[in-house]
Simulated scan of single mutants.
Amino acid sequence: MTERRSRRRGEELERAILDAAWEELKASGYASLTMEAVAARAGTSKPVIYRRWPTRAELVIAAWHREMPTRPVAPDTGSLRGDLLALFTRVTKRADSIMSESIAGVMGEAFRHPDIAELMRKRLASAPFPQVIQSIIDRAAERGEMPPVTITPRAARLPFDLVRNETILNGETSRTAITELVDDVYLPLLRGLAAG
C-alpha cells in the first residue's frame, strides 16, 4: 500500500507560497515573475495562489510584508544622529534586498490599479515605523539632545519614503546618500518639529 502525502493547508500552504514568491522575486525580478513559476516552486497550483492573491502585485506585496520584521528594534548607538544613520542603513538594506526593479514594478501596478494602491497604503500604514522613530526620539530627549516631540505618522514614514525614492531613482542608496538624507533632511525636520 502506498502512503498518501498529506496536503498542506492554511498557514503552512501560505508560508510556502510566500516563500516561493520571495525567492522568485529575488531570482527573476518583478517583471519576469509569473504565477506559474511561483506555483511550481511552492509545489502547488495557480488556482490555489489566485484564490488568495488575485494579482501578481498583491502576491509580491504580501511576500514583502512577510519578510519585514514584525517588531523591529530601534537602533541605540548613544546619539540621535547615530541612531538615525543606523535606521536609514537598515531601511536601505531592506530596500536593496527587494531590488529597485521590484519596487518600481509594484508601484507601476499601484498607479494602474486603485485596489493595489489601496493595499499598499494599508500595508504602509500598518508598518511599525512610528514606534521605532518615536523610540529613537524619546531616547534623544532623555539624553538632552532635543526637546520631547510626538512624531506624526507621515514624518515617521519619511525614512522609508526617502530611501525608496533614492533606490528607485538611482538603483541603490549609497552611504553618502544615507548621510545626506539624515543630515540634510531628517535631522532638520525633527529639530523643526521639536521647535514648533
Results as ranks from 00 to 15, higher is better:
residue 35 M to T: 06
residue 37 A to C: 10
residue 39 A to Q: 07
residue 40 A to G: 09
residue 40 A to M: 09
residue 41 R to A: 08
residue 44 T to K: 08
residue 47 P to G: 09
residue 48 V to P: 04
residue 49 I to Y: 01
residue 51 R to D: 13
residue 52 R to K: 11
residue 52 R to M: 09
residue 52 R to C: 09
residue 53 W to D: 11
residue 57 A to F: 06
residue 58 E to N: 11
residue 63 A to R: 05
residue 69 P to S: 05
residue 70 T to C: 10
residue 71 R to I: 06
residue 74 A to S: 02
residue 76 D to E: 03
residue 77 T to L: 01
residue 78 G to F: 00
residue 81 R to E: 00
residue 85 L to G: 06
residue 86 A to Q: 02
residue 90 R to K: 12
residue 94 R to F: 11
residue 95 A to D: 13
residue 96 D to A: 13
residue 96 D to T: 13
residue 97 S to K: 07
residue 98 I to S: 05
residue 100 S to W: 07
residue 102 S to T: 10
residue 102 S to W: 03
residue 104 A to N: 11
residue 104 A to W: 08
residue 109 E to C: 12
residue 110 A to E: 03
residue 112 R to E: 15
residue 113 H to V: 13
residue 115 D to T: 15
residue 116 I to W: 02
residue 119 L to S: 12
residue 119 L to Y: 04
residue 120 M to Y: 10
residue 120 M to Q: 15
residue 122 K to W: 10
residue 124 L to W: 12
residue 124 L to I: 14
residue 125 A to I: 07
residue 128 P to W: 05
residue 132 V to D: 02
residue 135 S to G: 11
residue 138 D to A: 03
residue 140 A to L: 00
residue 142 E to M: 06
residue 143 R to Y: 00
residue 146 M to T: 06
residue 147 P to V: 02
residue 147 P to I: 04
residue 148 P to C: 03
residue 149 V to Y: 00
residue 149 V to H: 04
residue 150 T to I: 07
residue 150 T to W: 02
residue 155 A to Q: 05
residue 156 A to M: 07
residue 158 L to D: 11
residue 162 L to Y: 04
residue 163 V to I: 15
residue 163 V to D: 08
residue 170 N to Y: 10
residue 170 N to D: 14
residue 170 N to H: 15
residue 170 N to R: 14
residue 171 G to K: 14
residue 175 R to C: 10
residue 175 R to G: 14
residue 178 I to S: 03
residue 178 I to A: 01
